[in-house]
Write a protein that binds this DNA or RNA. Structure first.
Lengths: 249, 249
DNA sequence: GTCATTATTTGACAAGATGTCAAAAAAATT
DNA sequence: AATTTTTTTGACATCTTGTCAAATAATGAC
């Protein structure tokens, strides 16, 4: 039944093993301390074998990235299917993004490393293509919601802004927020009590600014949030252990 | 008159030379291809001498960062002194940030490298302290404007958001936007015509969402923008060659 | 079952980087 | 001019990544 031969399955299993070890090392010691030797050693293979799977160190990185992005995509698709108006769906997207960041704490750092310092042009064209395509898919999922909202007249964007551009802006906020949290500035002691909650408030203000109906002042989005938690991401919440509870406080 | 001896001046000059070469190499070849050997070679000193100035490669990076941050701080201070209401000042801050990003295109990448992958704990405590302090200064400059606006009743923030938190949110948008532009996604072909203009529109929408007076619908902020260009940053604009012209298009 | 052929795995090796340090060179002092 | 102090040097040790000929294992023919 299985279309893969025994050999192929073995190779795939080993590939996954290498990636797993790579991720563990990356999370514990950081990218600079991640060595192909150590992956080989921990997997009980030789370095040469590891290099048959990944033509360079960066390739490990981008494949881990792709794995996490695939997860983000699926979370977004689930969020987009949330029952509610478009603004509620957007909130589900926002939540999915926060959840994802909590589940994959190292991915932000990986993206940084990957995108900075001419790292990208060492990876395989295939992986790079996959990576870019996933970014596109993810953006388009969100842009679809915005377009739908326009069609349903829940929002009317000024001429200077189109749906993709709005997504770019919202994405900037989320992405930048996560990034700033990843730098270890003493946000707390500076007076930022709960960064995630702030980003949500900012996003809501932005949508209010565009007069996206229903406004946050005329609708109970707190209730929406609870529905999102229950209806969309109950499993993940349970797994990661009260992610959002912290933020409600 | 000079408090520095000849020797001290020589050392300082050499330090600056090394940093200069470091920046050039960084911008042309990226961080991974930046080598202490090459700095030494180009400066016509030996590697050992370079290591007397920077105890590690990362130290070069953070000192370049600090240099750029100092510039950002001074630009922000000039923006904060702009003649106008607090929202106009905030717009001047926004403009200063965009301008700075254009003048120091490599700093975003440097921050990425610096903050990711356990790089930060290799640099000297002194530099790290200076770096953090500058971040604080910069944030506080902006938070001061927000606080003043509250005092002047130009805006009233909800209880869930304090001034520093609002700054964190706005900063997230700017920072994330620059970051996303630095990754080389095909933003253009995705439909994002002018990323910087989008970020400005988003920021304005956010402030509108908080009912920050005067709203963008009841005030000519385009005129403000022109005043900012003329009154605050004419020199820099001239130097970098019509930065903002592009964005107006 | 044996041998030949093909595929896979290996680890020694080259190349290049960071960071160290004893010795050489230069400068200052006596 | 001799001596002490400071500064500079580049050879080393060490740790990377990435390669590749040779060793090993798997496959298939007869």
């Amino acid at each position: 039944m299985n279309t893969l031969s025994r050999k192929q399955r073995e190779v795939a299993a080993r590939h996954a093993l290498f990636l797993d070890i790579g991720r563990r090392l990356l999370e514990s010691d950081g990218y600079t301390n991640l060595g192909m030797d150590r992956i080989a050693e921990l997997a009980e293979y030789s370095k040469g074998t590891v290099y048959q799977h990944f033509n360079c160190k960066e390739e490990v990185l981008i494949q881990l990235c792709i794995h996490d992005q695939l997860h983000l995509k699926s979370l977004f698709q689930r969020a987009a299917a949330f029952e509610g108006n478009q603004r509620e769906k957007l909130m589900a997207i926002f939540f999915a993004n926060s959840l994802w960041a909590e589940i994959h704490p190292s991915c932000m750092e990986m993206m940084q490393t990957l995108c900075g310092g001419g790292t990208k042009d060492k990876v395989s064209a295939e992986s790079l293509e996959k990576h870019n395509q996933l970014d596109l898919d993810i953006i388009n999922t969100v842009a679809g919601i915005v377009s739908e909202a326009i069609k349903l007249q829940e929002v009317q964007l000024p001429e200077s802004i189109n749906p993709v551009e709005l997504v770019f802006g919202l994405w900037s906020t989320c992405h930048g927020g996560l990034q700033l949290q990843a730098y270890d500035l003493p946000l707390q002691s500076m007076g930022v009590r709960n960064p995630s909650a702030v980003l949500l408030a900012i996003t809501n203000a932005t949508l209010d600014g565009f007069q996206w109906k229903p406004l946050s002042t005329e609708f109970d989005y707190t209730a929406t949030m609870e529905r999102i938690v229950d209806e969309c991401f109950a499993d993940e919440i349970a797994e990661t252990g009260m992610v959002w509870a912290k933020q409600a406080t």
